[in-house]
Amino acid sequence: MSLNNAMLEKYRNNFLQEVAGNVEQGDWVKMCMQCGVCAGSCPLGDAWEHSPQKIFMMIRANRREQVLSSDSMWMCTSCYHCVVRCPRGLPIPHIMHGLASYAKRLGLAPKSNPTLWFAEVFWNNMLKKGRVNELKLGLSLYFKDGFASGIKQAMAHQKLGINMLKAKRMAPMDMFAGHAIKDIFGLHKMIRKAQEIEAAKLEANSK
């Protein structure tokens, strides 16, 4: 049984409990008093369908699929305006991040969301050598929609690239070398272990 089905089976009609038990800082959701300060504070408030306030109410109303497939959590810029203003002190950005990554893990996140895509590219880029390779990260962005579009993007941003090179804020050699940590083996082992522990907990929770 997929993890999603196992969770559905286990929690039945109690999505609030599912969130509290499986989502980063999810037990805070029940503290929301629906004042709406978070919704009014979000810099991308115009860009998303569901404000944190709405997401929290939808969780209580068991709108499981609607919440997990929403692109709203992926609009969080981690600016922390909501968290310092929330009268109940909810760690809202972390709950948003938690819902987003939980949705991704269950296979319910919106697949074409650009931030979901970028988060994955960033994570893999950073993990490869233990440090970000900005040149490769930038090029992956240009070539996101294929080769032809990538060339077009790169041409359009040619001036910016040249200026960054001149200012020594971009290094062409990073294409081949780039910054790396020494104990990359240890870092990878550590991350694998952390992933294993986390996956095992989720698996146990689904039973």
Binding site: E24, S78, G98, A100, F122, W123, Q195
Partner: peptide, 23 residues
């Protein structure tokens, strides 16, 4: 010595909680 990337604020998307905090 040998510091690594913190995975920044976008790390949550693939990093979840424990791997991210481990970094």
């Amino acid at each position: 010595p040998d510091w690594n990337c913190c995975s920044a604020s976008i790390g949550y998307g693939s990093g979840n909680v424990l791997p991210r905090l481990s970094l």
